[in-house]
Amino acid sequence: MSLTANWSYPTAIRFGAGRIKEIAEACAAAGIKNPLLVTDKGLAYLPITQSTLDLMEAAGLGRAMFSDVDPNPTEMNAEAGIKVYRDGGHDGVIAFGGGSGLDLGKVIAFMAGQTRPLWDFEDIGDWWTRADPEGIAPIVAVPTTAGTGSEVGRASVITNSQTHEKKIIFHPKMLPSVVICDPELTVGMPPMITAGTGMDAFAHCLEAFCSPHYHPMSQGMALEGMRLVKEYLPRAYADGTDLEARGHMMSAAAMGATAFQKGLGAIHAISHPIGAVHHTHHGTTNAVVMQPVLRMNRPAIEDRLAKAAAYLDIVGGFDGFYDFVGKLNAELNIPANLTALGVTEPDIDALVASALQDPSCGGNPIELTKENVTQLLRDCF
């Protein structure tokens, strides 16, 4: 089976090994003539990024880059990037990298033509309608990890540097116009990042699948996304050059982010404040808290996960699924709990308060309260 295709759901996706060579065509399709490539500090001078800049330059698109992006990007990173974008007279963004580069690139494109402050567009009610849609620049997204799926998302997670809270900035036009999913770009990912980003994709699929909201398209996508992670994440972790496994994991990442239009839940609601305050890797944090969240939600999801287990060829219904998650985490050398992840002296009350404010709460199968989230967090240490 050839892992090469052109998709237009949820946006135009150029999928396949070597397709980064189509970066100039992708920019042309998005109407971009003077792009700003936005990536993170760690990727900026790696060969995959420099060769992409070479392709841009050869096509007459220049080689402008902004890479002052923290692992958990902040509004200060956004302000610096917007200034570079405006000063350079750019007309679009190439968001390049993992979740941080993709999220910040999308925010820079979104904010380039806005006059209101960033926090006015937090994902609350209809706040997105405050934006001037004509001021949103086009985006070409190029993921270099297989986890967040931000390349097919309509939102970005930005950390408020003052309050240390992760905020979700949303607008429908933040969805990139064109995506290039080239598994060759993920070959250099260290095993630890392969594991953490892969489990982020799994968490997106799992929480979307368990969400009580109605979205059958997302439901089916979440189920198949979990299967791809089950089959191919251990392979990608064991052999980073396994392009078939890398390709299927890129699909799973995009599927998870498309599926979570149906909702997320407690995994993300507690992972967001932990990451914002303790600077842990997001996907790895999701993996660490996954089993405690499954235990808490069991009364509401036992039957549903039994059906998922049957599809995934996991014996034992809910218990079999739960044990599978534990074994997968162990195989990927995921820390056993938040203490082992390096979270020390946590302010449980503050984390609970932040978790209950997180938009992900709305998709949890049981209502999240101060009492059950406090117990959940304690169970994670």
Rank of each mutant, 00 (worst) to 15 (best):
A254M: 15
S177K: 15
A201T: 06
A306C: 10
G42A: 03
T339Y: 15
N372F: 09
D379K: 14
A80M: 13
A28H: 07
G363P: 09
P172Q: 09
P365S: 01
T258N: 13
L356C: 07
G198T: 06
M56T: 02
I348K: 13
A64P: 00
P138Y: 06
A236N: 08
F321V: 09
F324K: 06
A5T: 10
A59D: 11
T159R: 14
I139E: 10
D123T: 13
N329C: 13
S211G: 12
V373E: 07
P292G: 10
A131L: 01
P273W: 04
H282N: 05
D303K: 15
G363Y: 04
L332V: 02
E371Q: 13
G320D: 01
V38W: 07
I136Y: 08
G113T: 11
G240K: 04
D120T: 10
G263N: 00
I139Y: 11
I136V: 12
A137K: 14
I169M: 04
I334A: 08
M199V: 02
N337H: 10
D132T: 10
A80W: 01
A245D: 02
P191Q: 01
D120F: 04
K327G: 05
G101P: 02
A26L: 13
E224W: 13
M111G: 07
H204V: 02
H268W: 14
T344F: 11
P216T: 03
N160T: 07
S100I: 02
D70M: 14
V152H: 05
G18Q: 08
R63F: 01
L243K: 09
V288W: 07
F260M: 10
K173H: 12
V140H: 01
Y322P: 04
L206G: 00
